[in-house]
Design a protein around this nucleic acid. Structure first.
Length: 756
DNA sequence: CTATGTAAACAAC
DNA sequence: GTTGTTTACATAG
């Protein structure tokens, strides 16, 4: 139970490379060979481009507007808009400019109201915040670091804010470093064998330079090397696998990825870590081994249902472990470990995983635990989710992902899940379709499971798949019924009821077997990758293996991935009730079964029906939290704990958005405003309000951040004097006028002199 | 007790 | 030697 009231809100926006889809993703890793181990892709390098362009369009803009290149984000310019400026005209001009420039030029603009108060304090946080990091980008070629913005909203007191920001920033940097590290050729790795930290340090320094370019402090980087990452092997494996477009990776590549992204393992860790990796792969059901068509290559994949599609870049470290300033995190720490949360930090680990960023626009935000957000079904924005189809590869997946952040609710509490398909939603924004539309990209809300099921996966052709696949599933592996409906068994599946454990009996009333079958069936298609054969291991009742499936998830914050269920996409309203209804069941199941069922399958079944998390309920959303958490988060536990894990299902009873907002303290940001029909409306209102609602995906400000310092943040929001500078991001590439509005409490002036 | 980490034995290539 | 599976043990929460 984490009482931790609130976390800092971090918003990140990533640009979706829709068109690119596959291309964007770094395919490299998909292929056994392709994944170059260290292939360093450097997104960051881009930084330079924008500058030139700045001037390009400047003339067009109304007087008083300043345009400067974003210090760290490629193709991004910061547009300082005078209070009195005509926003629409500016947007138009920017849009035109962006289009003219095309992909090469600045196509993303951060609109900042010059009128906003800037804080002196601001640490460099602003910059850092903006700084893009993409470790995953490595994986995804298309992804550009610049694509997303992360913003921290420290609503609360300045103090808390600053500290919080800093920390978060630091964390981010850490990640960035990591990524950068990965990017860079690993020159150093050498012998720095485990124990030799000292030598390592030095060698590291060497690399550091290159890395430094990325803008990471050397010290941090070094720390990254010497410090064990706060991620469990399971989490790292997930990061690795999800970093690939196809979401599959060979063992060796997993090793490489981890070494590249977590220098610790390259230089410091004992060789035994690889054994542990293998152990984890075998142990956890969520990891599924697939064999290439030719049977020569084994790929490890993540069970679609279980896959959160978490990537390293989705996680950030809020604060130093223990940092006094961030009580929140401290709280979380204990939890993590306990729970299955993959991200749980190990004892002594300083770095904590943060919320995963949503691929699309918004980033998951955690809300105060006690305060559940409610997404209204009304929100159901028409989602175009043809996700799978439209989006390819990881991109598709990512885009599809939605992070829901729900405060963890105690079990007792009614489940409240947020389905935040879009950040907005998550934020508690009531999303009118129009808003969503702002984003061009369809926010893939598709239910996560849909992804799996379908296709979403990398896939390629969901439909096609089945034929080739043979799936062996054990009885134990049961999956949620949810899937069944959506996918009729297409492919022939071989089930090998290996061992029926006593557990089977445990399964929910629903015939487990059937479910399993269904599951498999469903599964198969998705996996579909026609060429690969999925090899499933049987689960041993006794062995720990796969046992994780149990509810571990409950604790993690849930990211809600978009669930694919086309229709489902938004079930919020409908789902909720459903959930609630089911809760009782779930509880019973989880509790009863949870214990007994060690095997994931069992859990799956049991929980599925009942799953506390809404996402799953309707469709099956994988709880991403713990290792196996994906299966279902047991509600039983008090969810009080805060998770860093990106996704958490809020178990709190739903409340109206308004309420939530208030609770969350969204008031500070004009969430209400967010209800604009069009971006422009937002803009218009925005200008006044300072806070801009993201047209499409604006992330809600994170109340938590503020709350850290002051849990009780006044719902009303920040005092005006604290008015934030808001930023609106205009992404011309996407044609969306504004994608994200940023509330930045930090002083932009810190990094943007012009603002001063 | 659970989740996780670690080590190790084995088996199959 | 690598990969994959299991088992056993230890530890933290």
């Amino acid at each position: 139970m984490r009482t931790s009231p609130r976390r800092p809100l971090i918003l990140k926006r990533r640009k979706l490379s829709l068109p690119d889809g596959n291309a964007s993703n770094s395919p490299a890793r998909d292929e056994p060979d392709g994944e170059s181990k260290g292939v360093p892709t450097q997104e960051h390098s881009k930084g330079d481009k924008p500058r030139d362009r700045v001037e390009c369009g400047t003339q067009k803009f109304p007087a008083g507007i300043k345009i400067i290149n974003h210090p760290t984000m490629p193709n991004t310019q910061v547009v300082i808009i005078p209070p009195d400026a005509d926003i629409q005209s500016i947007i138009e001009a920017l849009t035109a400019k962006g289009r003219e420039c095309g992909s090469n030029g600045p196509n993303k603009f951060i609109l900042i109201s010059s009128g906003g108060s800037s804080r002196p304090t601001g640490s460099t946080a602003a910059q850092q915040t903006l700084q893009s990091k993409d470790e995953t980008s490595t994986a995804t070629k298309g992804a550009r670091a610049a694509d997303w913005l992360s913003v921290c909203f420290p609503a609360g007191s300045g103090e808390a804010t600053s500290s919080g920001l800093d920390n978060s920033l630091t964390n981010i940097q850490w990640l960035g470093k990591m990524s950068s590290d990965g990017l860079g050729p690993c020159t150093v790795k050498q012998e720095m064998e485990k124990e030799n930290q000292t030598p390592v340090q030095e060698t590291i320094k060497i690399e550091e330079d290159s890395i430094a370019a990325t803008a990471t402090s050397s010290s941090l980087w070094q720390d990254s090397i010497s410090e064990r990452p706060p991620y469990s092997y399971m989490a790292m494996i997930q990061f690795a696998i999800n970093s690939t477009e196809k979401k599959r990776m060979t063992l060796k590549d997993i090793y490489t990825w981890i070494e590249d992204h977590f220098p610790y393992f390259k230089y410091v860790a004992k060789p035994g870590w690889k054994n542990s990796i293998r152990h984890n792969l075998s142990l956890h059901d969520m990891f599924v081994r697939e064999t290439s068509a030719n049977g020569k290559i084994s790929f490890w994949t993540i069970h679609p249902d279980a896959n959160r599609y978490l990537t390293l870049d989705q996680v950030f470290k809020p604060l130093d472990a223990g940092s006094p300033t961030s009580p929140e995190y401290s709280e979380s720490a204990p939890l993590s470990r306990t729970l299955a949360d993959p991200f749980s930090s190990l004892p002594g680990r300083k770095m904590k995983p943060l919320l995963p960023r949503v691929s699309s626009y918004l980033v998951p935000i955690q809300f105060p635990v006690s305060q559940p957000l409610l997404l209204q079904s009304s929100l159901k924005v028409p989602q175009p989710m043809a996700q799978g189809a439209s989006l390819s590869g990881s991109e598709a997946i990512r885009s599809s992902k939605r992070v829901r952040i729900a405060p963890k609710v105690s079990v007792s509490a009614s489940l409240g899940l947020l389905w935040c398909q879009s950040p907005l939603l998550s934020m508690g924004f009531s999303c009118s379709p129009s808003l969503l539309h702002c984003d061009e990209r369809p926010p893939p809300f598709a239910p996560t499971h849909s992804l799996k099921e379908n296709n979403s996966q990398p896939g390629e052709a969901p439909a096609s798949c089945p034929a080739a696949l043979c799936i062996k599933e054990e009885k134990e592996d049961s999956y949620p019924d949810k899937w069944l409906p959506s996918f009729p068994p297409v492919s022939s599946i071989k089930e090998e009821p290996v061992q029926s454990d006593e557990e089977t009996g445990l399964l929910l009333p629903v015939p487990c077997v059937k479910r399993e079958k269904h599951f498999t069936m469903l599964k198969s298609p998705p996996r579909g990758v026609s060429d690969t054969v999925i090899i499933k291991r049987r689960k041993m009742g006794r062995s720990r293996r796969k046992q994780h499936l149990v509810l571990p998830c409950s604790e993690e914050p849930v990211l809600v991935l978009p669930e694919s269920g086309g229709s489902d996409s938004f079930r919020l309203a409908s789902d909720l009730p459903f959930l609630q209804e089911t809760q009782s069941l779930e509880l019973s199941c989880s509790q009863e079964e949870g214990g007994p069922f060690k095997t994931p399958v069992k859990e799956m079944f049991c929980k599925l029906p009942v799953s506390s998390t809404p996402s799953k309920v309707p469709t099956a959303t994988p709880p991403m939290g713990g290792p196996d958490s994906w299966r279902l988060a047991p509600i039983a536990k008090e969810s009080s704990e805060l998770d860093f894990s990106p996704v958490r299902t809020p178990q709190v009873p739903f409340t109206s958005l308004q309420e939530n907002l208030d609770l969350l303290g969204f008031n500070s940001t004009p969430l209400k405003n967010s209800l604009f029909d069009s971006p422009r409306q937002l803009l218009q209102t925005e200008s006044n309000d300072m806070v801009s609602g993201p047209l499409t995906s604006s992330p809600a400000s994170n109340p938590e951040s503020t709350k850290q310092s002051s849990p009780e943040l006044p719902a009303s929001g920040l005092p005006e004097n604290q008015s934030l500078m808001e930023g609106l991001v205009l992404d011309t590439m996407n044609n969306s006028l504004s994608k994200i509005l940023l509330d930045i409490k930090m002083s932009w002036s810190q990094f943007i002199p012009e603002l001063r």
